[in-house]
Design a protein around this nucleic acid. Structure first.
Lengths: 367, 367
DNA sequence: GTGAAAGCGCTAACAC
DNA sequence: GTGTTAGCGCTTTCAC
């Protein structure tokens, strides 16, 4: 049987290698062993700094590995060890700044734990979310992090019993979820506008936002309005189509063009808020003198001085940190039991909100 | 020997499984075979729709696989097939909008070819770039896509002989590279400012930009200036530190505060241009009446109406498309020989540039 | 200390 | 058509 092992280093492999990379095939542990004049086991031990061996032997093995440019084959190692050092991330849309920023935070955190990130996007297609997850399962990722999940719950259910699934920014019945307190966020934004004296406040959402998120924020908005003695108007609650920018623009214009228009709007995301700002500018409405706008998320763009958007901030870094830490904890001990976590959003005052026009006739100078 | 095969389905595996996922371990091809009452090969064939088999058998196998929730183990398959369906992407910094947007384009393109994206960032650390690449090699990715490489050339050399390496937005002596014509870009931006009558034009760069890129653009800028009978002033050529925002701000203020300040600045990136806009705003300088600014990249942020940055656009989608297509071509046939590709940048006129103050005293109305 | 042997889950050549 | 077998590159007992 030992002769089999000897042969295994060569064999049909050369034939396959012929059609491969422009250069050569990467050396295997066997090649290193041969060069160093030891057995495979010794090489494996030397590389992992395991077992007790003559320091001189170790040095020789390491030198041989170096000379050949040897790199362990992660796939082979994973196969025998029954685990991978890869974490799968599913994100709806990387063109959405919020998702992109969350992802940007995720990568270094994952890397810091010695893992790699296999990233898939679902795009607009709902089916894609399922197949993205399937693919991650096939790669036997150690855990799956899902950002702003919008798809079918059952997909997660099927996977969740095999590997840890952590949802960030989405609160579903399944899996550990990490999100913000959307009701609080809804209150924060609405209260701010109310305090500035606004009585005509619109709520503008986007179909790309998960339903539950939208509902929580909108209900808080309505509740705050009623508490202030106002009755929420249905025509001022928009849910714009995520697919078509021009449709969104048209609907926003319609909202802002009425003679009886709102004096303030609470947007479901910073992107929506920024689109509103642009629309207001086109319509010749001054922000915040004639229209106050508060966003949600606090993406980087919101803080550039030319935009200076007042917004309800999601603690993006914190969400990412908790997500990764939860994932790692679950990978290291699958029996860790964790409850859904909720972090608090925070109102960030910048320059897109001001006193309601009817109250303060002389506008607060902007900037 | 067949008995060995039989045993291999069970064995010590259960012991290992015990400590694993919260649910169960994923079924193997063997489990499916047993449930369907066939051999492993038949299952393998059925799943890949290969070989000729009774349609009835295939249906039975597929049903069994479905029932068990079977998913092929990509790692095991890759091991025997000597290839992976994963493309590694190395990006300097996902917080940089240009890199983030390029990455956003990359993912769906990669997925469309049936591959997955293993994403690593190098961050500020130069060493990290090397270890990120090493890790990709260990995972035996089919190809490596490097975005805005800033590190040590030798790292790429060592890897390039084993797998295709494609650099996007970076032009090095090694590997296939896909970039824009930076000299043309430099000319475009400078010419535009010159045509508007500016005679005092600064060039502001950032140390995060690869040296060659910076040099090409700056040299074109100088050349254009000289051609217009001007002599480039050294004190108006800045290379701001990528690490410290406050240092950058201080240096920009210094540049713009001099009584003998430039009337226009050509920035090496949109982000730099936007920081300049903010600085000008703080200093009470009106853009573009008192200061014209042209950026470089055309990131999404540049087009939002509140910013409306005039800029030299990199065709991001095109760069991504070519990068992925080149990678795939190389994976499918390693002997494909490809030359470095260069695409053309394009000047996008928006609202941050206007006639030089000395020439047109009455300012061109902005917006 | 070192090496032989088994086996991770899968595919593909080759018998039957 | 279906089963058998070898083996991808690696780790890990377990003898020596």
């Amino acid at each position: 049987m030992s002769s089999v092992d000897q042969r295994s280093g060569r064999g049909r492999r050369d034939l396959q290698a012929a059609g491969r990379a422009p250069g050569s095939r990467l050396p295997t542990i066997f090649d290193v062993a041969r060069l160093a004049g030891v057995g495979k086991t010794t090489v494996s031990d030397a590389i992992q700094d395991r077992g007790r061996m003559a320091p001189e032997t170790r040095a020789r093995v390491l030198a041989a590995a170096e000379e050949l440019g040897y790199r362990v084959h992660a796939g082979a190692r994973n196969l025998i060890q029954q685990r991978t050092e890869v974490i799968g991330v599913v994100v709806g849309d990387l063109f959405d700044p919020f998702c992109a920023e969350l992802t940007a935070h995720l990568e270094p955190l994952i890397a810091a734990h010695g893992f790699r990130m296999l990233l898939t996007t679902a795009g607009a297609d709902l089916k894609a979310e399922g197949s993205a997850i399937t693919s991650l399962v096939e790669h036997r990722v150690a855990a799956i992090l899902v950002i702003s999940f919008t798809g079918d719950q059952s997909v997660l259910d099927a996977v969740g019993s095999h590997m840890p699934v952590i949802c960030i920014g989405y609160e579903g019945p399944y899996g550990v979820s990490i999100g913000i307190d959307d009701r609080l966020g809804g209150r924060l934004g609405t209260a701010h506008l109310l305090e500035l004296g606004h009585r005509h406040i619109a709520y503008v959402s986007n179909s790309g936002v998960p339903l539950k998120t939208d509902r929580d924020r909108r209900n808080s908005y309505r509740r705050m309005l009623r508490r202030a003695g106002l009755s929420p108007e249905r025509r001022w609650e928009l849910r714009l189509p995520a697919e078509s920018k021009s449709d969104r623009y048209a609907q926003m214009c319609e909202l802002l063009r009425e003679e009886d228009r709102p004096t303030a709007v609470f947007a479901v995301s910073d992107i929506t808020a920024i689109e509103l700002m642009a629309c207001a500018e086109d319509l010749g409405l001054h922000v915040p003198r004639e229209l106050s706008i508060v966003g949600f998320d606090d993406i980087m763009m919101a803080s550039v001085p030319m935009i200076a958007l007042t917004t309800v901030a999601q603690p993006i870094a914190e969400l990412a940190r908790r997500g990764v830490e939860t994932a790692i904890a679950l990978v290291e001990d699958p029996h860790t039991s964790l409850k859904p976590q909720r972090v608090e959003p925070q109102l960030i005052l910048r320059s897109t909100t001001g006193p309601a026009p009817s109250i303060a006739i002389e506008a607060r100078p902007r900037r």
